[in-house]
Computed example of a mutant assay.
Amino acid sequence: MKELLDLYLSFFKMGSVTFGGGYTMLPILKRECVEKKRWVSDEQVMDFYAVSQGLPGIIAVNVAVFIGYHVRRTAGGIAAALGCVSPCIIIISIIAAFLSNFQDNIYVKEAMTGVSICVVALILDAVLGLWKKGVKDKLGVAVCAGVFVLMEFTSVSPIPIIVGAALLGVSYKTLAAKKEAAK
């Protein structure tokens, strides 16, 4: 029971300071779940993020479920997910109750501007971390550049791009293994 409460509270803390989506959660998640609690490894976090991107729903919640499930199976997944979404529910409820008082407040507008700038820095940190873990060779650089171009300059859905990149990665590794075995 203590471990479930620990999962809930850890993800509650992360959820309460994660503005801007799942990628802004990555530096906090790595510090809390990889370095401090040692629930998962860096590689597992990257795998959870990769799979979460292809699933419906919020990336941060999906990753929380994966980590919670890894730690304490179904109950852990539920505890982590609830911890991740509880701060949002509380904050949205408070804002909804007082929305008319906040919408024209100059301090709230300026605070949100500051939060937006912070979100950009957190996403950049996450991108650099993902780059270091995921892009390991020339093929990785080429795939990353190709996906960026497709996403930025076309209207191609991310789903076939993700599937295509996965198939390319599997094909490349299979061919590399066959070449190595033939030596």
Rank of each mutant, 00 (worst) to 15 (best):
V141R: 11
V63A: 00
F98G: 06
H70W: 07
A79Y: 01
A165S: 09
S10G: 08
I89M: 13
I28V: 07
A96K: 15
C88E: 08
N101K: 15
K183Y: 14
M46E: 08
L139N: 09
V143M: 06
F12C: 03
L124P: 06
L9N: 10
R38M: 14
E152D: 14
H70V: 06
Y69V: 10
L175S: 13
G15N: 08
T174N: 12
S100G: 13
L124A: 12
F66W: 06
L130M: 12
G77D: 02
K138M: 11
V85D: 02
F98P: 10
V119A: 02
A181L: 14
L128F: 14
I106K: 15
A64I: 01
G77I: 01
L7F: 01
F19V: 04
V147P: 06
E32S: 03
K133E: 12
A75Y: 11
L128K: 14
V45W: 04
E35G: 01
S100V: 12
T24R: 02
L167R: 10
F153M: 13
I67N: 03
L4M: 04
S93F: 13
G114V: 11
C33L: 15
Q44H: 01
L167N: 09
D104R: 10
K36S: 09
I58M: 13
G57Y: 04
D6Q: 07
F19H: 05
T18F: 07
F11D: 04
E43D: 12
K13R: 09
I123A: 05
G20R: 04
V163S: 10
M25Q: 02
D137F: 12
P87V: 05
V85G: 04
V143P: 07
A60D: 01
A121F: 15
C118M: 15
V119F: 04
D42P: 11
G68M: 00
R31V: 13
L7N: 01
W131S: 12
A177C: 05
A142S: 06
K30R: 10
H70Y: 11
I106H: 10
Y23I: 06
G21Q: 03
V71A: 03
R72P: 00
K2M: 15
L55Y: 00
T154F: 09
K179P: 11
I123G: 02
I123F: 00
T154P: 08
E110G: 15
G134V: 09
V17R: 06
S116C: 15
Q44I: 02
A165L: 05
M46A: 10
T18R: 11
K37Q: 07
M25P: 01
A111E: 03
G22K: 00
E180P: 08
S86G: 03
S93Y: 10
A126C: 04
S86Y: 03
K173S: 15
V147E: 08
V71S: 04
P27K: 08
F148H: 03
F66L: 02
L175K: 14
P158L: 08
C84Q: 09
N62W: 03
L4Q: 07
L168G: 08
I92G: 14
K36Q: 08
P158W: 05
F66P: 01
S157K: 09
D104T: 09
P56I: 02
E32N: 05
A64Y: 01
E32K: 05
A166K: 11
I92R: 11
N101M: 12
P87N: 13
L122P: 02
A166T: 15
I161T: 10
G21N: 00
K183M: 13
G68H: 00
D104E: 11
D104V: 02
L150N: 00
V163Q: 05
S41M: 00
M14H: 09
G134C: 12
M1T: 10
